[in-house]
Write a protein that binds this DNA or RNA. Structure first.
Lengths: 190, 190
DNA sequence: AAGATTATTGGACTGAGTACAAAAATAGAT
DNA sequence: ATCTATTTTTGTACTCAGTCCAATAATCTT
């Protein structure tokens, strides 16, 4: 009856990585908004429907690296790490070997409302994670103005560090270094 | 030859206000995502095309009040006011007489994700305004990490105050009071 | 060979947003 | 009154993201 989950069924055609690569190429060639999902899946040799098996939306493609870091942050916080440590840990695990896709599209992102909105989903998630953890650390209601303001400031610092790292160009520091500086500016350690 | 700008041409059918009212009604009846632009314009007695003469997107309807406040903030900053004063001024001019549309939708909307997402354009605009003004006040490059972190923290405080005001319910304080408390928490005056 | 399970696919659909040209309504000038 | 310039409104056709679903394909277990 009960089988081990991964064993049965048609195997994946390794589509996810293929789609990511095709998208990265096309975004560089034609820009994000100039590329349709149809084009991406055609180059990846996959049907349009398959795209939505792997991604919830087109804009997810721009936030793959950010989403991984956020996922790490969530895990660290869930395991009981203090907020500052969790942020540092998650930041330290974002390698410099790969240029985030959002970087190359940075100029497009400024203008396009859709991208800005999709970015906010990430900001909102980071903020919510931090807010929740802060409310635990201090014993305070989650919706108090103080917790919200503090969470927004911390999240803002994280975002600013991410942005500085993105804009840093080839001689950029590590994300951890930017993050450290940014947190110091909002006096994380009280 | 040259005429005064407002005089000639077909007069407006007072559509903007009508559309806003129709949308407010429908959002309360059926929720934001359960209402199409077509339905809104039908109730307003206007064509769908006309909608886009007045609004850039459907989600604009949720942020009418916020957009007015942001516009005020922009004017105050442009006239040379210091950042803290400009924020306070803009906040003080948001009257309590009218419940913002986004408020009534916060609980009505099944998932607030959409609200959150469309809100980012506003957060981004507030942040950009503050960043620009800060870079002028301090004589520093606009993209420095310090300016960005500070701008994000201030914008975060403004947003938190707006959120607290929204959630305040019938016995809420004024937006200015929430804003004052939030700014104190990020030590606006250094 | 026969299910059970999972991945892929095609196709039809909804709805937001864009583009644009035609029509309608006004004011002023001839 | 007629014409002209100007502005708003409208119809229409279009693109594309995202949803839904049923059919098919590829694999494993029995």
């Amino acid at each position: 009856m009960v089988r081990e989950p991964g064993s049965a069924g048609r195997p994946k055609a390794s589509s996810r990585g293929t789609i990511e690569e095709a998208a990265a190429e096309l975004f560089l060639e034609q820009s994000y908004s100039g590329t349709t999902i149809e084009e991406i899946t055609q180059r990846a040799g996959v049907s349009r429907a398959t795209f939505f098996n792997y991604f919830e939306s087109k804009s997810d493609l721009l936030w793959i690296d950010a989403d991984r870091a956020i996922e790490r942050l969530s895990e660290c916080l869930a395991s009981g790490m203090r907020v500052g440590d969790a942020i540092a840990r998650a930041a330290s695990e974002v390698g410099a070997e790969r240029v985030p896709l959002a970087v190359s599209q940075a100029e497009v992102m400024g203008t396009r409302e859709e991208l800005v909105a999709s970015g906010f989903a990430r900001v909102a998630r980071v903020t919510a994670l931090i807010r929740s953890a802060l409310a635990n650390e201090w014993v305070e209601e989650r919706d108090s103005l103080a917790v919200n303001v503090r969470a927004n400031a911390l999240a803002g610092a994280v975002i600013a560090a991410w942005g500085a790292w993105i804009r840093g160009g080839v001689d950029r520091l590590t994300l951890l270094e930017y993050t450290h500086d940014a947190l110091a500016l909002v006096q994380l350690e009280q």
